[in-house]
Design a protein around this nucleic acid. Structure first.
Lengths: 220, 220
DNA sequence: CGCACCATCGGGGACAACCCTGGTTGAACC
DNA sequence: GGTTCAACCAGGGTTGTCCCCGATGGTGCG
């Protein structure tokens, strides 16, 4: 069914980016009949130029390239308004590779162990706006995204008394001492005392660092 | 092939959470032969209790429930060390629903238009550690993840002179006037002047709002 | 050339932030 | 009953923030 689907409508215009010429010609031979391969290049700079010039529908993008890798290409094109989709294609199944290139804007990530039909399907789905991942890899992105390091028992935070934590939260949100005092019915001087001991206990020097500290731990 | 794959090995233990009893019995009838449905519940509290007690392999989780929805269940279980996977199952295909529940820790999201076989496949893949999405929905997560809304031509930002933007960046990072002055070799008074005009042009009242404004636009 | 705008710098003042040294109360613990 | 600690409050001082008023040069423009 692979070839038919593409041949019926306008074929998808694909650019292949990989620093190994043999691999590029392999891709060309495998899927060249089913999609319109508008070019194949081997360097970051060539890729950027080719994407700007030919505006392919989908870029088949190798992750590991000299001079910055696929991420460099995606970042260079981040501001362009084209609707070119990028599908990362790599031998690596390492979480950091996947996360880096997805964060840079790729719409999918498949390993080079993929079959002919699966690759065609992936290209079509990316072109249609879906995200495509080899089975295990999607989990990496979710792990990074859901960012669930609750750190329920934060040793630093535990050293603060309940009242100090309460004040900390309000200060980190940008309220002045006076506003905090009014909000939890204290005197300004008491708020100052609490903030001082919070700063001392956390080894911070001012409320700006405190805000950064709090946002780091997501206690807002 | 659906039934065979499950019957061969130990069947996957599934808990169904949905506030509509009819839907629960529908799921039960559809896939009860292929997986081991260890319970079906209709409220957040029941779900939390049931997950703790029965430790299912996969929770089929409705997104929209009274008292907090599926997100509340995921958050309540975030600290538990079980390896129960949650697959969100919803009528909604809204980006905010998808992002919220994935951020809370769900490992997949499919709409209720799914077919019998697709649902079984989704359950198996989630159980195996993959992430599963209905076609269009994965893109929502990637959009939220790659956080690439540079807003290169921000009209507000353009109204600032280059020097003002430079000072803005440093102030937003928490440096004091004195530190900014030392860093770009100006007098403190000049820094004050620049900050004042930045605050005036952006209609902000203090540096806390400025920090919030800057982080909003990711100019750090 | 006058004019607007930018960048640089200053004085003075009001207020907020931060630190220090105190104090009182109440609850918990030995 | 003495100790310890959280929570509350106060005075006084230094520094930082933000605003007002000004000033000087440089640049580009009609």
């Amino acid at each position: 069914m692979g070839t038919d689907g593409a041949a019926l409508s306008v074929p998808i215009r694909v650019l292949v980016v990989d620093d190994h010429a043999l691999f590029r010609s392999g891709v060309n031979a495998e899927i060249g009949d089913s999609v319109d391969i508008v070019g194949d290049v081997g360097t970051v700079d060539e890729a950027i130029d080719a994407i700007r010039a030919k505006k392919p529908d989908v870029v088949l993008l190798d992750v590991h390239l000299p001079n910055g890798g696929g991420v460099a290409i995606l970042e260079a094109l981040a501001d362009s308004t084209s609707n070119t989709k990028c599908l990362a294609l790599s031998v690596s199944d390492a979480a950091e590779d996947v996360i880096a290139i997805i964060r840079a804007g790729a719409r999918g990530y498949v390993t080079k162990t993929i079959t002919h039909d699966e690759l065609l399907d992936a290209i079509r789905r990316v072109h249609a706006g879906d995200a495509v991942f080899s089975p295990r890899l999607a989990g990496f992105v979710l792990d990074a995204f859901s960012s669930t390091k609750p750190v329920t028992s934060d040793p630093d935070l535990d050293r603060l008394t309940p009242r100090e934590q309460e004040v900390l939260r309000l200060i980190a949100r940008g309220y002045t001492y006076k506003e905090v005092a009014g909000r939890i019915h204290l005197s300004v001087k008491t708020v100052e005392t609490h903030v001082s001991s919070v700063l001392r206990k956390l080894q911070l020097s001012n409320r700006h660092e405190l805000t950064a500290w709090a946002t780091d731990r997501r206690l807002l």
